[in-house]
Design a protein around this nucleic acid. Structure first.
Length: 542
RNA sequence: GCGCCCGUAGCUCAAUGGAUAGAGCAUCAGCCUUCUAAGCUGGUGGUUAGUGGUUCGAGUCCACUCGGGCGUACCA
């Protein structure tokens, strides 16, 4: 519909020259009586033309060549909006397109041939994924999927660090639990990992090696066993949510391949770093940020900033057109340093999109649960998935803008899982499948011959909603906002349920019945495609 | 103190700078001898935290105030 109007205005701009290079856009008004599409172009032009906006709008309307079989009504409204109403037959013809495209309906080729990388989760293997990680994981995977829908070839990537202080403490935590199993009197330190999973790993080591590890160093087998066990669990947790990373990038490889040293040399060459008090500092203040930061500590160990910068330069060198980072808000102070450093190294950071999500506040029976992996007072993502299922977890984290500080009441989530909006969508899909089972026995089939019979308001609204899917996907992808899809699908499901209630198939004259079946099938396609972007299943029966 | 994010119905949240701020949950009243009632119809519920500004038009942009979250490490 939009494309049609753009063409129409293009043609008309020969007569009305001020339409050339005008800020022309069309939007679907919130209120149905304001038409199918509306433009505010007359309002925007009135200033530069120094004319009354309604007068300008009238002139435009008069100049537009209207084909009444396509546009049934055009009107001037309010302060100068031009509202367009499309004919039912034109609207209904969309059903056939949806049917022909099937699983591909909603995909676009706008970014075909481009490559993107989405880095998400990236939790170090020190403990199970928490509900907090769930938001990052689900959102990141959905963004990746949205990018695929608009044409990108996408790599999903997980960045991790299995060296450093955290991991040493982890290894030592396992070692101490192991010694406890051997019967040693151990005062388990408060700054070690308190979780039960540490005991499990220790127990497993004992089962395999008995007491032969008594003198094993923490950084040896203990750390290795912990890392591999925990990583396996993380991958299992993610796979339950249908999340699979193509690339697992180990921070350590940056050292092994000399990237860190290379980067340090480059900073030095470009005079972007200096030595002070035995540490190496990055001249961030000269690059435009607030203050200089340490990149190599006086102990000789780099801070996280250095590998972060190196990692991003490695990814940029791989030739992606778009790099997406999904971070929690605790990283909001670090990425500007990385960005500005990359820029000073000569990289085009426009290719990098950093998406910061706010934290999830977990409430249990109204009480805030403070999350800490080390202190082991967290709710794991697995526990949540056990309680409500993968579909609800995925839908829930996708249905809210990441800028919002989410409150998640566990007790409520468990209790109300039956009333979650995801079931509303799945129910719509299941109902359509039920229609399909029914028509077989009635020897009815979908038909596109008489789509112009679909003139009921419920039918027209549903078709219009279906028509907007491709645009919604594109908007969601370009704005990196998954909640647009869930909002859209809920609206769509509402439109379908109303259609289902008021436009029956059984007991209707055959031509109309078969047109309605075609419409129901089109709705099925869109619901299924939309849910598949979100990674939510579309059941045939409920 | 400074930086980033947030503040919308009782609760959880929507709303490309557009016309009358919307859903779900909760609550109240209706609808199942016909394709799934996990549904549909209607009602109650708002000074969009506050004050000023920009604009033909502000929940949305700007400034300030109040309130909350996260940062502000030679931790990641």
């Amino acid at each position: 519909m939009k494309a049609y109007l753009y063409n129409l205005f293009e043609t008309t701009s020969n007569a009305l020259t001020y339409l050339k290079d005008s800020p022309l856009t069309f939007e679907a008004p919130k209120i149905e009586s304001h038409g199918d599409l509306s433009t505010n172009v007359a309002l925007l032009l009135s200033k530069s033309l120094k004319r009354n906006p309604r007068e300008v709008a009238n002139e435009i309307i008069a100049a537009l060549p209207i084909d009444e079989s396509i546009i049934s009504k055009i009107e001037l409204a309010g302060p100068g909006f031009i509202n367009f109403f499309f004919s039912p037959a034109f609207i209904s013809s969309k059903i056939k397109t949806i049917f022909e495209l099937g699983d591909n309906y909603g995909k676009s080729k706008k970014y075909a041939g481009k490559k993107a990388n989405v880095e998400f989760v990236s939790a170090n293997p020190t403990g199970p994924l928490t509900v907090g990680h769930g938001r990052n994981a689900v959102f990141g995977d959905t963004i990746a999927s949205l990018l695929e829908w608009v044409g990108y070839e996408v790599d999903r990537e997980y960045y991790f660090n299995n060296a450093g202080r955290q991991m040493r403490v982890l290894g030592d935590s396992v070692r101490l639990r192991y010694l406890q199993i051997l019967g040693d009197e151990i005062d388990f330190p408060e700054d070690h990992y308190q979780g039960e999973y540490i005991k499990d790993i220790a127990q497993q080591l004992f089962n395999e090696h008995k007491d032969t590890l008594r003198n094993e160093p923490a950084e040896g087998l203990f750390k290795a066993a912990a890392e591999s066990e925990i990583f396996n669990d993380i991958k299992k947790t993610l796979s339950r949510l249908k999340i699979e990373h193509k690339i697992f990038f180990n921070e350590n490889s940056l050292y092994e391949e000399g990237k860190i040293k290379q980067l340090l040399d480059t900073f030095k060459e470009k005079n972007l770093s200096y030595e002070k008090e035995n540490a190496t500092w990055l001249k961030l203040s000269e690059m435009g940020n607030e203050q200089d930061k340490v990149i190599v500590k006086s102990t000789g160990e780099p801070t996280y900033r250095l590998p972060d910068i190196a990692y991003h330069s490695v990814k940029l060198n791989r030739g992606y057109d778009l790099l997406v980072d999904i971070f929690g808000s605790d990283h909001n102070a670090t990425y500007p340093d990385v960005m500005v450093a990359l820029k000073n190294l000569g990289y085009n950071t426009d290719r990098v999109k950093v998406l910061i999500h706010q934290f999830v506040t977990i409430l249990d029976n109204g009480e805030v649960v403070k999350m800490s992996t080390r202190k082991a007072n967290y709710v794991t993502l697995d526990e949540l998935t056990d309680e409500v299922g993968s579909d609800v977890v995925r839908y829930f984290f996708n249905m809210r803008n990441i800028t919002t500080h989410m409150n998640f009441d566990l007790a409520l989530a468990k209790k109300q899982s039956d009333e979650n909006p995801v079931f509303y969508l799945q129910y719509a899909h299941a109902r359509i499948c039920s229609i399909l089972r029914m028509i077989e026995s009635e020897s009815l089939k979908p038909s596109f011959e008489n789509l112009d019979l679909l003139v009921m308001p419920e039918e027209q609204l549903l078709i219009k909603k279906l028509s907007k899917f491709e645009e919604e996907v594109l908007n969601s992808a370009e704005q990196f906002e998954s909640q647009r899809i869930t909002n859209y699908l809920e609206d769509l499901a509402t439109a379908f349920h109303k259609f289902y209630t008021f436009c029956r198939i059984m007991g209707t004259e055959k031509k109309l019945a078969e047109a309605r079946i075609a419409l129901a099938l089109a709705a099925k396609i869109v619901i299924k495609n939309g849910l598949s972007i979100l990674g939510v299943s579309a059941p045939d029966k409920m």
